[in-house]
Design a protein around this nucleic acid. Structure first.
Lengths: 246, 246
DNA sequence: CGCACACTTGAACCCCCTCAACCCAAGTGG
DNA sequence: CCACTTGGGTTGAGGGGGTTCAAGTGTGCG
């Protein structure tokens, strides 16, 4: 993890890495960081920058899984559907997030852009080759998958055993810590997702989400200047509610 | 996956692989299968056979994560607790299942033996070394983790959006397919777990589980000679209920 | 026999869902 | 400029699926 990157022998930095990877701002936080500059050239050759409009579904459950994706900009909702339209959002993915880890030949979930999204696409066969050639990349992916798994288990606890109030608190606390150093949580949130997304993520209805937000507001735990903005007035108290401490 | 194992050069089989790995009956279905015989010697050196009595907790959430485990016999429940005792079982693990993938320094869940359990223990630092030395092992672990992730997402859909009846049907269908070829599902189940375990796995109460089983029995979808035995009388219908088709 | 334990069944309740109305801000077009 | 629409959000009233509380059934085992 903190092992210093070995200096390439016989090659003088800086190395000209082709677009798009050479200038990708997300590299430092994404899986691509597992690769050093000289090998990044190969990665760049098979990466494929894609723009996705807000609202577009770019991964459809059951479709043949042809690609991996790495989000570089924007927010995405990942979800599964039941035949009658009931939806469960299994997660939100932002910059640096890696998608498409399914082992099976078909995607096991759908992905839809919430905002306009930029992402990096890799064909699966080529990605497999890369994984084979660069164990460090595979190691990073294993860490990513393990981490996703821990989050999924936490979400199972939420969906199976927490009350609506605890779910909302958990959601807000998670958003506060998302993508920032753990000792510097946000207190102002700009939620990219709608109330309906939140409901489908937390296993509730849109009305319950709205009512519970109102309750939290009445209890002075949050303020809602204008939705999608939420201010966390008492993060400690929210954390206590989220953890179901008495 | 189905790539033939390369014949070791200069070494005549059979190779004497030390206990316990050499004779481990689980090898063919476990992660250890990623390693060929000559390297299995090294794996055996750091493997550690352990017996766990039914009811014993052998992984405790929050404890320092010192080991990985590979179950070779018996059934285990994996769970998370809330401070007031609410429990969410995140999964059941049987022979061949690999435990302890958490990236963090601490376990993110607890594990408790349901039946008497035999398992194989690896210290994390040594395991890391093995992973580094044998990319094939890492690749297998990534597949395992990806697969677990898919299951976790399916379970989120269940917990967030399915009715009690749909949850029980899903559970039974999953059990029917567990550990057998996909075209040969079981119709007789010997459930190792109690009603309470099932309830905590499906996000319900024990009473709802019992009542819903009774309903399924009244509808001639299952028979219950004596609990823990369950006979699936109409697997297709159960599958339809599980998938929420109409 | 009697105790323990897992499971089942019944009755009352409640948290969240359903259905419905309403608010509000941002278009859109005459 | 204003009427109308549209989409997201809020709030209210009533109902229901699952929980809670409680009693009862079965089964193994000392």
């Amino acid at each position: 993890m903190n092992t210093p990157r070995p200096v390439p022998i016989l090659v003088q930095p800086p190395i000209a890495v082709p677009e798009p990877c050479g200038t990708c701002g997300m590299r430092s936080i994404s899986v691509c960081n597992a690769i050093d500059d000289i090998h990044l050239i190969r990665l760049a050759e098979l990466a494929n920058g894609v723009d996705v409009q807000a609202g577009r579904v770019f991964i459809t459950e059951q479709d043949k899984a042809t690609d991996f994706f790495n989000i570089t900009e924007g927010t995405v909702r990942l979800f599964k559907l039941l035949p009658d339209g009931r939806r469960q959002i299994t997660g939100f993915a932002g910059p640096g997030h890696f998608l498409g880890l399914a082992v099976s030949a078909n995607y096991s979930f759908s992905a839809e852009a919430i905002t306009d999204v930029k992402l990096c696409r890799f064909s699966r066969p080529r990605m497999r080759q890369m994984l084979h050639d660069f164990p460090a990349l595979e190691e990073t992916l294993l860490e990513v998958a393990s981490n996703d798994l821990v989050c999924a288990q936490e979400q199972m606890l939420l969906l199976g055993r927490k009350t609506a109030r605890e779910r909302l608190a958990s959601f807000l606390v998670a958003r506060a810590h998302d993508g920032v150093p753990s000792d510097m949580p946000r207190t102002r949130l700009h939620l990219a997702m709608t109330r309906e997304d939140i409901a489908d993520y937390l296993g509730l209805t849109i009305e319950t989400v709205s009512r519970t937000f109102s309750k939290l507001k009445a209890d002075k735990l949050i303020a809602i200047p204008s939705p999608p903005e939420i201010i966390l007035l008492n993060l400690n108290a929210l954390q206590a509610v989220a953890a179901a401490e008495k």
